[in-house]
């Protein structure tokens, strides 16, 4: 079938305003939006900028706004969008990050926030030499959901809080922190309290659920944020302290 890809293009090296360019592509219903983009660069216009790698929703390279919603281009089939929205597919770069070229955004500010939450194991104890830490199936299950995150930044783009507060660490960084705070092997919340219990940490979140709605890994992000907020409040209450929320 014939589909029109209406792509928001821009290149900071060429002084021109962001503008929409439409490309006709011949695709199957079951082709990925990414396949359409590849068709454009290989046969029509090689200057189009976008990222890609695994092409099946694991590497997190190709998040973009497809018909206004954050999705991975390799996990979105044409039939998924054409049936509901018609045969003009609008493609725009993620929001809240500077555009580098066309559909590519500078992910560095996103990764900087990721790094800020100490996204690595800070062990409580050491296991016996040549042994694993013991962890029950239930303990392992507690943080399973957070391990699914591929840092695609879809949630970061969809988050309405970042519209008004660009310093908010954003949903993905919180998920990465939760990955460790709920891991029985880790020192947990205490080791990341400064980053989470901060006016730009957990607290700006207003539970708008946009992150949860767009997450291609179906992580219940808002729920994890709220669980962690409660955990911090409890931690502070037990010590007769106030959360650092303003």
């Amino acid at each position: 079938m014939n589909v029109k890809l209406e792509i928001l293009r821009q290149n900071p090296d060429i002084a021109e305003a962001p503008h929409r360019v439409t490309y006709d592509v011949e695709v199957d219903q079951t082709d990925r939006v990414l396949d359409g983009l590849i068709q454009v660069t290989q046969n029509v216009d090689g200057s189009l900028g976008f990222r890609k790698s695994c092409a099946h929703g694991i590497c997190g390279s190709d998040a973009m706004r497809i018909n206004g919603k954050e999705r991975l281009a390799c996990r979105t089939l044409f039939r998924d969008v054409v049936e509901t929205d018609g045969d003009v597919v609008s493609l725009e770069p993620l929001a809240h990050l500077p555009v580098q070229k066309d559909l590519m955004v500078d992910q560095e500010p996103f990764f900087e926030k990721f790094r800020s939450v100490k996204p690595y194991l800070i062990p409580k104890t050491q296991p016996e030499a040549g042994q694993e830490f013991l962890q029950s199936e239930e303990e392992r299950e507690l943080f399973d959901e957070a391990t699914k995150c591929i840092n695609c930044a879809a949630c970061y783009s969809a988050c309405p809080i970042l519209d008004k507060n660009p310093d908010f660490i954003g949903p993905a960084a919180i998920v990465q922190a939760v990955r460790f705070t709920r891991d029985s092997r880790d020192q947990g919340l205490e080791a990341r309290l400064d980053e989470l219990d901060d006016p730009n940490g957990l607290w700006p979140c207003e539970s708008k659920f946009e992150c949860t709605r767009v997450c291609p890994r179906e992580i219940k992000i808002t729920k994890l944020i709220n669980l962690t907020k409660r955990q911090v409040k409890k931690y502070r209450e037990e010590r007769g302290e106030e959360p650092n929320d303003r």
Binding site: Y120, E132, L134, S136, E137, E139, R140, T147
Partner: peptide, 22 residues
């Protein structure tokens, strides 16, 4: 064997047996 334990000790979230092992 050594590398798997090393990765687990560094945080790799392996699935677990009922005894809590990898």
């Amino acid at each position: 064997v050594q590398a798997v334990y090393d990765l687990e000790n560094r945080g790799l979230p392996f699935s677990r047996t009922p005894e809590g092992r990898i």
